[in-house]
Design a protein around this nucleic acid. Structure first.
Lengths: 344, 344
DNA sequence: TTTGTCACTCGCTGGCATCGAGTGCTAAAA
DNA sequence: TTTTAGCACTCGATGCCAGCGAGTGACAAA
């Protein structure tokens, strides 16, 4: 759709309408725009313009004799063409900085705090995903005998990330066997990215001897050890922020989104979807989302760097959200996060 | 309060009232009880009885000319004296059994599944806490060099539980130094329960030499390594179940409880409180709860065994809950969980 | 092309009467 | 003495209706 031929006035009216609707949550009438934004045109003119916008599918009337609200397409146009950068206040920057940096306890703790600060400052859902280790390079693998039949596998990645997997094995494994296996794994696999290891472990480890039962745990294509998502964690903060929003006055809707929060697989995909395209901010509006349950919501997300790999953070809320503000927020938080993780 | 002198009839009426109210959520009138439960007495008699119950503070009227609803004290009496064991259906037992047993991926995954199945079968919040390792005996401690300035500490407990802590240290530590420290720690500390280690690490490790910077990480009273709660995790399932309950029609209430779910420290304490007293089922009703935010809710909880230590599982919902059913449910789930964890 | 004006639409609000579930009380019955 | 039937009364819930007002579309004037 070629919306470039929107007149200047049409753009302005759309922008004002969205800007007002985002805070009021009520259909916006021509008079409100005329009074609040002083565009130098009368409400009657604005009415005509709004009629045009409606024909283009950018706004709609919930019912006759109501004001207009933006459609998904309206938001899209706004985000693509009309979005002005909104700066964060110094206070906001400071809060983000302090929250994200002053952390002990590893990356998980940092990400949890980040999701909270995102939620708090946006008054939406704040979401963070642990780094996607698919392309992370394995620097070292350690096997530790925990108890009879239990082996702890520690994967250390050159990005500084660690992942532990507890394996269970029926056979009893002697310490020398374990050490031998550990050495073999390091020789054959370290220096390779995890994704490659998963696909080629079978060939690379074939014929290396060692305890066959133990070996088998590392060979399978779907071995727990090499699954890149097995340790992926999603932190979600601010679920309470959604409750008060009029969009979720309907309990069915609320139920749906709360359920979504608790079964995060789909959400992880939705959030990561943007990563591939771009390393900057990705905004997904309403029905553009893949999973049906979230099609009345928008996502503003960005990637952060953790060593050589990337993770995703973002904000989720109803399509009626302050895109400009959230863009700055998410961008700044992602930068801070990358900075903090680099200094580790 | 001596409620033993309740007449047989009063007990019956209270039990019927609660039983009906639990499913209807509406104040229960005398006529409903007379018709539904066929006690052989007229509604007028029941009215008189209910008046007596109200004087005793066991039921109350939300407003004149409404039926009665149970008070916290009413539920308490019901739970203590009138609770009949309600058996689970075979289907329910099977679902629990299958969900809890067929699990890979360590105890965390099992507990998460457990919280979900509890939520699903109870239609309330299902909650599980990881085992309380305060009294767990350390069987082995391993130090692994992850990256420059990063050391992974692996604690293995004789119960078969493992915990990993990522430490950061400014100094660069050589491999021999690390191994030496590891050996010292094992010699001095293994065989001791974690709680004791925390209190006495300073004395026990004094004068053992080794890299002082490294050593210091294990000496502090509040060292991350020995904190028994640092790895405690709370799994909560079924938040969506609460939304539809009339008790949470008030958005403020709902907000409060959702917020509680996301900041679980208080919840952990509330849930563990019962553990100390008893190894069986603990039922905490309404205002009996410590933390204010949860005083309109009840908790049905039980301990499970994980080796020599214990954890807690439970169900949380409005005081209007089917205590009999939930008791059986939580008890059975705890048994299954203990069984599964023993076979690991 | 823009603006002022006006008739019209339609959701929202508040008042009012009605309904009915449920009670407490009293007097009769057991 | 205890239970029951009957009855007047309370009070929240429901439904209806009128009035309000925000907002529109259309049209004629600027």
């Amino acid at each position: 759709m070629a919306f470039e031929n929107l007149s200047d006035r049409e753009k302005k009216v759309l922008a004002c309408l969205i800007s007002h609707y985002v805070t009021s949550a009520d259909p916006v009438g021509s008079r409100v725009i005329a009074n609040k934004f002083r565009l130098g045109i009368s409400s009657a003119t604005i009415r005509n313009t709004m009629q045009d916008l409606e024909e283009m599918g950018l706004v709609l009337q919930p019912h006759t004799s109501a004001g207009r609200i933006p459609t998904d397409a309206g938001y899209r146009l706004f985000v693509d063409m009309l979005l002005g950068e909104e700066h964060l206040t110094e206070t906001e920057k400071r809060v983000i900085h302090e929250t994200i940096s002053a952390q002990y306890g590893g990356i998980d703790s940092v990400l949890e705090q980040t999701s909270r600060v995102l939620a708090e400052l946006s008054n939406q859902l704040g979401v963070t995903i642990t780094p996607h280790i698919e392309d992370s390079v394995l620097s070292r693998i350690e096997l530790i005998h925990m108890a009879e039949g239990k082996i702890l596998v520690v994967l250390a990645f050159s990005s500084g990330l660690a992942r532990t997997i507890l394996l269970e094995i029926e056979a009893s494994i002697s310490l020398p066997e374990l050490n031998a296996m550990s050495q073999v794994l390091n020789e054959k696999l370290s220096g390779l990215p995890l994704g490659k290891i998963r696909k080629s472990a079978q060939e690379r480890l074939a014929g290396t001897g060692g305890n066959p039962r133990l070996l088998r745990l590392f060979l399978d294509d779907d071995s727990e050890v090499w699954k890149s998502d097995s340790g992926t964690r999603l932190h979600i903060g601010g679920a309470e922020n959604l409750i008060m929003k009029p969009e979720f006055a309907d309990k069915e809707k609320l139920t749906e989104i709360i359920r979504l929060i608790n079964s995060p697989q789909g959400l992880i995909e939705s959030l990561r979807a943007g990563d591939l395209k771009d390393s900057g901010i990705v905004i997904t509006i309403g029905a553009e989302n893949r999973s049906r349950e979230i099609q009345s919501c928008s996502i503003v997300s960005a990637s952060y760097n953790a060593g050589e790999t990337k993770g995703t953070i973002g904000v989720i809320g109803p399509t009626r959200m302050p895109y400009g503000k959230l863009t700055s927020l998410v961008k700044f938080a992602a930068q801070q996060l990358s900075k903090v993780l680099r200094n580790r």
